[in-house]
């Protein structure tokens, strides 16, 4: 999507469809077809664990960075405070997209792992398939908040060990033991810079979800 082209529409061209276009053959997707389910996977982990790299590598679109406000939200329970006049700090979310086939589009959100950002996670977790938690073995404890969060909410996840150069190579079992993961949670190795490696981590997550589905519904075609 290159919006600059649209902005620079020359004289005689219409930057926007005419009002009559509404209803007839307006822009946008075909609204008669039932919308496919929106699929979402979260990529969590501590600072520097490789979330931005991971989302950028597997995404088919330019890695995008969406921001959310940090300040202002803490004041949200003050009904008179509708106007934010101070400077506000933002928190960045990595955003990516993978079109799997004509009916399935997977969205990825890379979310900062610290607990103070959990207000963001609540919206992001709604309807999410599951999560990939990235762990950097040099700072393993940074992934604990994310692990705790998904465990408590019963959201399926895999632990993807991002092995940085110079980091000690632990076995999967050593990592599992150190993090205190349940035996069924997969621990996979991952190089967040490689699309194939990231895609394998996502596949490991979905495979895990398939094997642990609690109330399997294999109903009609989706």
């Amino acid at each position: 999507m290159d919006c600059a082209d649209v902005c620079e529409a020359g004289p005689g061209t219409r930057p926007l469809p005419a009002p009559e276009g509404r209803g007839a053959q307006g822009p946008g997707p075909d609204r008669s077809a039932p919308p496919p389910a929106t699929l979402k996977i979260l990529v969590a982990g501590g600072f520097g664990a490789g979330k931005t790299t991971f989302v950028g590598a597997v995404s088919e679109i330019e890695p995008l960075c969406t921001e959310e406000l940090l300040t202002g939200l803490s004041e949200a329970d003050d009904p008179l405070e509708g106007v934010e006049s101070k400077t506000a700090t933002t928190v960045a979310l990595d955003f990516g997209r993978i079109t799997l086939d004509s009916r399935h589009v997977l969205y990825l959100f890379g979310t900062p792992g610290q607990q103070r950002f959990w207000f963001l996670w609540e919206e992001l977790c709604a309807g999410a398939l599951g999560a990939v938690v990235l762990a950097d073995t040099r700072r393993l404890a940074d992934c604990f908040p994310a692990v705790d969060f998904f465990e408590r909410r019963g959201i399926g996840f895999v632990l993807a060990v991002n092995e940085f150069d110079g980091g000690h190579r632990y076995t999967a079992d050593e990592v599992r033991e150190a993090v205190g993961l349940a035996p069924e949670v997969p621990v996979v190795r991952c190089d967040a810079r490689l699309a194939s490696s990231g895609t394998r981590a996502l596949a490991a997550l979905v495979h895990h979800l398939l094997t642990t589905a609690r109330h399997p519904r294999s109903g009609g075609p989706t």
Binding site: K40, H104, G127, A203, L209, L210, A213, T222
Partner: peptide, 19 residues
């Protein structure tokens, strides 16, 4: 959003195949 997307085996298989 599906209520329990992680329990929809048909959907999960489609996602896994796509990946």
């Amino acid at each position: 959003f599906l209520n329990d997307p992680a329990d929809d085996l048909t959907l999960l298989r489609a996602v896994l195949d796509g990946l």
